[in-house]
Amino acid sequence: MRAGFPIALPGMTVGLLGGSFDPAHDGHVQITEEALRRFGLDRVWWLVSPGNPLKAHGPAPLDQRIARAGRIMRHPRVAITGIEARLGTRMTRDTIATLQRLYPGVRFVWLMGADNLVQFDRWDRWRDIAARVPIGVIARPGWRMPARFSRAARMLWASRLPESRARELACARPPAWAMINLPLNKLSSTAIRARRRKGTT
């Protein structure tokens, strides 16, 4: 294993939560803690990305975002990483494939918000992502129905586990996905950045 990378042993289940985290906030903490508990994961790794190809404006410097994330997310089973920058990968499919090669025997689960499931079919090689790892979808209020009827959800519907079986997801053979509901949390990175620009935070 490369120096500076998180430790995971064969047989462990690790959720991968990718994003710009620009900035990280309590909403990210909430979905991480719920994912650990309700998907029955051993670990969650935050993959703080160098940049998001689907976003027009670049994020704050990576080191700043990782440092803030480390102050916000304090949990012994959560690692804050800049793995994609270390590996030189930009696309989710390539990141997952490389991690699977580096961590043989570890069961990875890709975690995403329901808003990302709505646009999942726009991701590079999204079908290959679904074929490689189970996908845990976290639905915030207002996004459950759009996600359920998204193009990707419809195409993967036969592989869906009901919410009552979410803890089985990490050991399910992909393609497999499950969606869990979260209580209301109004925080978003977009809103925080907007308030910063207005000088209200």
Rank of each mutant, 00 (worst) to 15 (best):
R127G: 15
W177C: 10
W126T: 00
G11A: 06
L54C: 04
R193W: 02
P50Y: 08
A97M: 03
H28L: 04
G27N: 02
G4C: 03
Y103K: 03
F149S: 14
P174V: 01
P10F: 06
Q119M: 10
V137Q: 07
I72Y: 12
W110L: 08
R68G: 11
W157I: 07
G113R: 01
R68H: 14
G58M: 10
L47I: 15
G113K: 05
G15L: 00
P104K: 10
F120T: 03
L182Y: 10
W45F: 01
R93T: 12
R127A: 03
E163L: 03
I66G: 13
L169W: 12
G19A: 02
P76Y: 15
F120R: 09
I72F: 08
Q30P: 09
R125N: 15
H57D: 13
G88I: 06
I135T: 08
A85L: 01
L156W: 00
W123Y: 12
P183H: 15
L47C: 07
T98Y: 00
R196S: 10
R195W: 05
D94L: 07
I192E: 02
A85T: 01
W46E: 07
D128R: 03
A170G: 13
A152H: 04
A114P: 09
M112T: 12
R132E: 09
G11I: 05
P146Q: 02
A139I: 00
G82A: 07
F39V: 05
R195E: 11
M12W: 12
F5G: 05
I72C: 10
R173T: 14
G199C: 06
E84W: 05
D26I: 14
L184H: 14
I80M: 09
T81G: 10
R93G: 08
